[in-house]
């Protein structure tokens, strides 16, 4: 199975335009390739899984399939906030084996097309490897967009809980 994953396909294809979904976690705005997104759901009840990694909120029933849900706030080391009416679970497919999981975001903003030329490589912060799962930063007129690499973001359960907020 050497098929490129949706993430790869979107970010590393030759196309000059990236199609992204942007969302907010805390004060930052992030974006992921639209092809990686399976669906976006409203908050639903999540069943806690004891012994799961800290950032794993639990599991949900996605039409008969049990998938884990990750709280990106916890993963990014941010303060945990209350779920609001805007909280969403974005269900994505990552990795070569079609692993499906969901992650919680504070708000889903928009679908946007971004020219590759306005995306800068991830800033390297001295001594930090935390930018591992950042594919780049998109410079919009009024704001910055952090492009996440989902494969790397969810690659390892034992990923150190780095503070991506600072890196950005």
């Amino acid at each position: 199975m050497s098929e490129p994953t949706p993430t790869d396909a979107a970010l590393h294809s030759d196309s000059d335009i990236l199609q992204l979904v942007s969302f907010e976690i805390g004060p930052e705005e992030y974006a992921i390739p639209i092809l990686a997104v399976q669906e976006i759901n409203r908050m639903m009840s999540i069943t806690r899984v004891p012994n799961a990694p800290e950032s794993v909120e639990g599991v949900i029933n996605l039409r008969g399939r049990i998938i884990p849900v990750v709280d990106l706030r916890k993963k990014f080391g941010m303060d945990v906030s209350e779920d609001s009416a805007d909280t969403r679970i974005i269900v994505v497919e990552v990795g070569d084996e079609g692993r499906v999981l969901g992650f919680m975001v504070d708000r889903v903003n928009q679908v946007l097309r971004l020219g590759r030329d306005i995306v800068d490589p991830a800033p390297s912060v001295s001594g930090a490897t935390s930018a591992d799962f950042i594919d780049g930063v998109g410079k919009l007129d009024d704001r910055l967009l952090i492009l996440l690499n989902l494969d790397r973001l969810f690659a390892d359960t034992e990923l150190p809980e780095t503070e991506i907020a600072q890196a950005a």
Partner: peptide, 16 residues
Amino acid sequence: KPLDDSYTQGGPFSGA
């Protein structure tokens, strides 16, 4: 249902 994601393994559970 299998609980086969690496995030949810490890607990004393055989499935869900």
